[in-house]
Design a protein around this nucleic acid. Sequence first.
DNA 1: TTGCCCATGTAATTTGTTACATGATTTA
DNA 2: TAAATCATGTAACAAATTACATGGGCAA
Lengths: 212, 212
Amino acid sequence: MTNSQKQKKQESGKRELPPTAWAVLGLLSFPGERTGYELKKWADSSLRFFYWSPAISQIYAELRRLEELGYAASARSGPEEVRAKRRYAITEAGREALAGWAGGTADAGPPVLKHGLLLRVWLGHLAEPERLRAMVDEHLERTRGELAAVREALAEAGEVPEWAFPALALRWSERQHLAELELGEALRTDLAALDGPAGVARQADGDAPTPG
Amino acid sequence: MTNSQKQKKQESGKRELPPTAWAVLGLLSFPGERTGYELKKWADSSLRFFYWSPAISQIYAELRRLEELGYAASARSGPEEVRAKRRYAITEAGREALAGWAGGTADAGPPVLKHGLLLRVWLGHLAEPERLRAMVDEHLERTRGELAAVREALAEAGEVPEWAFPALALRWSERQHLAELELGEALRTDLAALDGPAGVARQADGDAPTPG
DNA sequence: TTGCCCATGTAATTTGTTACATGATTTA
DNA sequence: TAAATCATGTAACAAATTACATGGGCAA
């Protein structure tokens, strides 16, 4: 390990919360009390588009941790019921901690993309050209569906003045999906150019230089 | 659990490999033998931009699994050394399995994006407007750096005809970063529009708060 | 001779998923 | 009254990271 990397280590005893915890707390930072189930559904129609879509079990786990930390508080509906419906709300401590995380000077870090189609394009020498083209077309179709979902969410959020920032993020996401569509079209063109005129080498073997 | 979700369950005994295993095998699918260390460096200058950047320990673990499955084979340099340098190559079985995965009819699934800046924008009500603007600017600066890195990788791959598909993916990534830059600029504009007219009125300006 | 890069690996821990179990309420 | 949705949770496991340990080769 290099020295510069060493300097990135944590010295503090209290360990940092993972992004998921902050995201859950972030959902809670908007007015109202809600259940874990509701949080999950909400995330799937908002944060999913640019950040995160966790398993429901993960939401419940994070809510328990947040409550332990005093960042969230819950009230069950039935008095002494086992596993009763539980509505969560953010606490003052939670709001402060979240504001420190979201509005602090710490770097948000680079966006991380995991694009399965692109990995397959990168590995294009292993697939039939027509199969590759079909994958791109499927991707375009799905992206159109996603764009529609973003716009649906935007139609809801766009009305309410309290949702101004979420609407902003969704607007970004709308543009991002439009760009993804253009990227897909360009990819299809590039793919055709590779396959069509010159008929570039699709053979797997034969020697070649090592990368790097 | 709904019925439609139930149908997605696996019935097969042999469990599917995670994407990381296929990505490592994918790196190995290009001619030449290489060490885990080299694989990591290569991934960080290629797949990182659109798919994946694993911990080095994860690479070593996957290589061991791949060898156990008979998908990869290794040869150590020193004869009986402990922990000697180990160069890996893909096997025929590995190539077949990979081709089945990458070129098969299975859906690549939707791309997943984790954009820390956007989460913070979504949570904009918790931060100072100027801090938010600074974050966007930092993001633009970093994206410019990433774009330069993509182009550097492209300059290397673009020459060799064997790297035609990797070059295609990198070309996609170049365009994607250009789009990300435009998205960031638009976000800055939207942010200013949100902050400007509703905030303190500047008497000299009057109206027309949207900058070019 | 210090420090960086190359190179491989183990251990501990955390994060996150899938599968399972349970039951209430709502809708067709 | 059957099915879907709402709602919470546990258990097992898989994936992945961080920290640590080790040591060779090379260059300022």
